[in-house]
């Protein structure tokens, strides 16, 4: 029981990760897939940040006397990773907008069907 409660941050991470990953592999609506990927990314970020946290630790700033502080490195790493994830999400959403303009749908299966029809037409026409 103590194992379960003591590591509650990891259970949150695992739950969010599985949720996000499930959405990524099960949905065909591309915006939903991107949202799933975002949830997945966030779970990894929480994993890192909770890794560096020490109970009762303060922020790593200079104060008089000895102090217990949390590991700042994990937060710094995630700051970089958040920037990367913003870029990827923005690029993904921009692509979805362009795809919607081109195909009139953002559903992966419908796009697949349209593409197969196009491909067959091209190969047919000699």
């Amino acid at each position: 029981m103590e194992f379960l409660v003591g590591h509650y941050n990891y259970w949150v991470v695992v739950f969010l990760m599985m949720l996000g990953f499930y959405v990524v592999i099960s949905r065909t609506h591309m915006v939903k897939v991107l949202v799933g990927l975002s949830v997945f990314q966030t779970s990894v970020f929480i994993f890192y940040i909770s890794l560096g946290k020490i109970r009762g630790g303060t922020a790593p700033i200079l104060i008089d006397g000895p102090a217990v502080y949390s590991n700042p490195l994990t937060s710094v790493l995630i700051l970089t990773a958040i920037v990367v994830s913003i870029a990827t999400t923005a690029l993904g959403l921009a692509l979805v907008v362009r795809i919607n303009e081109a195909y009139g749908t953002v559903d992966e299966e419908e796009i697949d069907a349209i593409e197969r029809a196009d491909e067959a037409a091209v190969l047919e026409a000699r």
Binding site: V24, L37, Q41, V44, Y48, T88, I111
Partner: peptide, 30 residues
């Protein structure tokens, strides 16, 4: 249009993979 949907699929698979990598790096650091 095929380039657009190919690019989005590439993006989704490559960034899902990146997240696994990042998670692995977190384990290494831990």
């Amino acid at each position: 249009d095929a380039a657009l949907s190919a690019a989005l699929r590439y993006l989704l698979s490559t960034f899902a993979a990146s997240m696994f990598y990042l998670l692995g790096v977190g384990h290494l650091y831990a």
